[in-house]
């Protein structure tokens, strides 16, 4: 359960974002807060700038914390189907979902057409807050014209004022192309997320050609949390965790966080869904990993009910 203060802060952030958007303020000032104050405070403007394009790299090919031996374990990231990994997809879906709700505008997702390969799966996206019913999938033939056509589609989509978020799985990207995207996002006001399926070798950040994206993130999987309730067997998977590296951001400094997806809609004790929609990001708190078994931690049995029923 997030603390009350946390919720308040989140609400304030959202109200502020709505006000910024509604007052006809300059488009490039609008922001999409991630809902985690530690990150939002670090980002210039209090969140991801909308009317702009951001990049999300896939960190699972070369997680920095891994040994060199581990690094060579995944010589070809392409084997994952040339699609972004689960964590990158989830992170993008969570951002897109937040924007979808804040702007009540649909999400466009541009991806190569890979017959028989992995594809976006609505029920999974929904658990990260992205409503699949309000999503338009754009499939671009994965031929030699892919990059050109996908960039065209992304530019068109960003330029359209009706669109909230445009996610695009594009690997190659020149400086000119990314400038065009940035310009299109400024015109349309939406949030552009470039998911780059393959992050190149070691010194990745410098190896990638420069481009005009406002920020560049790298998301990798972290061993997940143990189940929350103390009585659950520890071998069960808990909430997913990611390492979120902000590699660069315009007007800010790089930083790394350990993020956890707090699925408020999922009753973590039973694993079954309650009626609430999906939850949000949270920082991994080192405390929660070693829950102190306390008798008082369990909900006391409300005996008041019993009186009422007996009469």
């Amino acid at each position: 359960m997030p603390a009350e203060g946390d919720i308040l802060q989140r609400l304030r952030g959202r109200i502020a974002a709505i006000e910024r958007a509604g007052n006809g303020a300059r488009a490039d000032q609008a922001c999409l807060p991630l809902g985690v104050s530690a990150i939002d405070d670090h980002l210039p403007g209090g969140g991801l700038a909308t009317s702009a394009v951001h990049e999300i790299l896939d960190g699972d090919g070369n997680n920095k914390t891994k040994t060199t031996e581990n690094k060579t374990k995944y010589p070809v990231r392409r084997k994952f189907g040339e699609s972004p990994s689960g964590p990158v997809t989830a992170f993008a879906a969570a951002l897109a979902g937040r924007a979808q709700q804040a702007r009540a505008a649909p999400v466009i997702w541009i991806a190569p057409r890979l017959p028989g390969r992995e594809s976006l799966y609505g029920p999974g996206l929904l658990s990260f807050g992205l409503d699949p019913a309000d999503l338009v999938i754009v499939r671009v033939a994965s031929d030699s014209d892919f990059t050109k056509t996908a960039l065209w589609a992304m530019e068109e989509a960003l330029r359209a004022p009706a669109v909230g978020v445009v996610c695009a799985e594009i690997e190659e990207m020149g400086l000119t192309a990314s400038r065009r995207l940035q310009l299109a996002a400024k015109t349309g006001g939406g949030l552009g997320l470039l998911l780059r399926p393959v992050s190149r070798d070691a010194s990745e950040d410098t190896a990638l050609p420069p481009n005009a994206s406002i920020s560049r993130w790298r998301i990798s999987a972290l061993p997940g949390a143990p189940p929350e309730a103390p009585w659950l067997p520890a071998r069960l998977p808990g909430q997913p965790r990611w390492k979120a590296e902000l590699l660069r951001v315009r007007g800010g400094r790089p930083k790394t966080w350990q993020l956890e997806w707090r699925d408020d809609g999922h009753d973590t004790d039973t694993g079954r869904n309650s009626s609430q929609p999906a939850g949000g990001f949270a920082l991994v708190s080192p405390l929660r990993d070693r829950p102190v078994p306390q008798k008082t931690a369990r909900p006391p049995i409300p005996h008041a009910n019993r009186q009422a029923r007996a009469n």
């Binding site: 189940p227 309730a229 009585w231 659950l232 069960l236 004790d269 039973t270 694993g271």
Partner: peptide
Amino acid sequence: DDTRRLAQLADIAKTA
């Protein structure tokens, strides 16, 4: 989710 559910029921039963 049977493992989860059984653990939960066991806990409830213990409490009650």
